[in-house]
Design a protein around this nucleic acid. Structure first.
Lengths: 334, 334
DNA sequence: TGCAAAAATACAAACGTTTGCGCAATTTCC
DNA sequence: GGAAATTGCGCAAACGTTTGTATTTTTGCA
């Protein structure tokens, strides 16, 4: 027999499928004796519950969908691990989709997950995504929605984000206190809450340290290695002696440019990144950066899902996680 | 209405669900006119097919399960992306599970996937996994099985692995040709085909280059950063002037030990890693390593699934992918 | 106009579970 | 000892699709 069903078990024991179903669910309306018997024969026959049928009948699944831009980013894969660590013990499992930073793929992923009747969706938006219609549909159809890292405002459900403002503030203030005089900023996409918050934190820190904000040394859309390399050249021409980078990859580009052009980091130039990618500590000089606790964020997002599922939280709610500055060589001016 | 079904559409148009079903499937047995009408109203009502019901009825799903030890390893997340790139266009989607290198979790993942009635399972075994019983059950219950990277022999289905033997051979031969005289080996778990193959390649290269195999400078279970650091000390005591490492993390440990102890790489000591992790090129000195084309491996594994699904391949079959040596500073003795 | 063939749609069962209800048989209680 | 409560299980419908077969409608042609 390919895959035994409860009907097969029922026939074998000359009882009805309903009793088998109840027994397997541990229902006490079935006597302990028959329950034991049923469980034993189920095991013998190699029975595995068909979750499709079960979920269809019950009208709900134990699967939650997670949509991330890319899973091969340290940050996202750690968030996933963090979420799994909460969800699996709670009896849920995760199906993961990538949006590849494309709006269309994000929408497709949402559709796929909804068609698969997931219990909820945990999402970090693609950078391309600017309209929240598709995401609003999630909520409208009764699904639990949790947004993390990159989140829209005004949507029902919980969002879990880093305190990007405070993180960037710390990073920039640290550069200022270390004695750098003209601090530029390699920013990200200004449509994303993540990067606007970091820029605001950067600006506030400048002001609080008696420096003026100079828009000409703020380079937007600059979170890749190439852009970091490229804009480092510009920043130097503009007289900068430090850069706060909204991403570690950009900071990597900065360090590489400095190396190629024999600019001494940290003595002549200071640089701080964001994210604490796994290579940050391995660079020479090691990169000062702000840690976003990805695993913790995954934990929180998963917990937020569970809380909403149990009706503990309603409406819009925001969780903000602090970021931690890790000081390494790249900003230690002596 | 929460989620419209084909029955709702049928009622609205005063036709039967079966016609609706066929129309949505594009069946020409329903007239073009009504097909168009049905599609339009379905869109208007925001209908989404319930895949649970559909799969239950059809007896098959469009989901394939993938089990990896850890998704936050560059290698595995790239394999996943590679598999997705083939599977999604083919109408399948992927559900990903982590085994955390634990046999128990691997078994659990297999169960979960089977209960979810996936069409097939693509797996790379956890290091702890040594018995193939659970995996054999996959095949027994009629599922398509594809193993990649870490694969068992003797199982029906396709396996896709790197040519670890040839890769390690190249790496070791390169060290020998570069003038290093006593080349040790940081090996991995000797129960895994991956690491035994690499060790064999290492040994063969030594022989072919007129060096003798000295088991005392082969350090097994040594693929972490810490172990690399630790065993580098031992290798130095044993008079080695080079190490071929079965993993980049171990090589990283080696480089760090050298840096801390003022040993010049590559002049005094040569090191080659395996995997080309993203940090490999960023180290100082940049790490010579063997690239395992993860994305390609994902492609092949996915294609192997499709081929089996279509009955193009039967029985046991093996695909071996060549590895490419990337020479960087860490082995360039002058 | 009539009739067979073809086209379009309807009917009903099935996929494997779960679950409200019903009905005996057994136990409990006063 | 008899009514009431409890226990243990069966019956049958339902979840939303799909699909083989039956039925109705349309078409083509003589």
């Amino acid at each position: 027999m390919a895959r035994p069903t409860i009907n097969d078990i029922a026939k074998a024991l000359n009882i009805t499928p309903s009793t088998v179903s109840r027994a397997l669910a541990g229902n006490t309306r079935v006597s302990a004796a028959t329950r034991e018997l049923i469980n034993r024969t189920a095991a013998e026959m190699g029975y595995e519950r068909n979750l499709l049928a079960s979920s269809l009948r019950k009208g709900s699944t134990d699967t939650v969908g997670m949509i991330v831009p890319r899973i091969n980013r340290q940050f996202f894969s750690n968030v996933i691990s963090g979420a799994e660590a909460i969800l699996n013990p709670a009896g849920y499992n995760l199906i993961i989709c990538q949006s590849h930073e494309r709006l269309e793929d994000e929408k497709k992923a949402i559709m796929t997950l909804m068609r698969n009747q997931v219990a909820g969706i945990i999402i970090s938006h693609s950078l391309e995504a600017t309209d929240s219609k598709a995401v609003a549909d999630i909520v409208k159809s009764g699904l639990v929605l949790v947004q993390f890292d990159r989140a829209y405002n005004g949507l029902e459900g919980i969002s879990v984000t880093n305190d990007n403002f405070a993180g960037a503030y710390q990073a920039t203030a640290h550069l200022a206190k270390s004695g750098y005089k003209r601090i530029g900023h390699l920013a990200g996409d200004i449509l994303s809450n993540v990067y606007t918050d970091r820029m605001e934190g950067y600006k506030k820190a400048l002001q609080d340290n008696g420096m003026e904000i100079d828009e000409s040394i703020i380079y937007t859309d600059s979170i890749t290695r190439d852009k970091g390399f490229y804009n480092m050249a510009k920043a130097l021409q503009a007289g900068c002696d430090a850069l706060y980078c909204a991403g570690d990859y950009a900071a990597l580009g900065v360090i590489e440019y400095a190396r190629h052009n024999n600019i001494k980091i940290p003595d002549e130039f200071g640089v701080v990144g964001t994210a604490n990618e796994n290579f940050a500590e391995l660079l020479s000089p090691a990169l000062t950066t702000i840690e976003q606790n990805a695993f913790d964020m995954g934990n929180r997002a998963a917990q937020a899902f569970l809380d909403q599922k149990q009706g503990k939280v309603e409406g819009e709610s925001k969780i903000v996680i602090p970021m931690r500055l890790i000081v390494r060589e790249s900003s230690r001016k002596n």
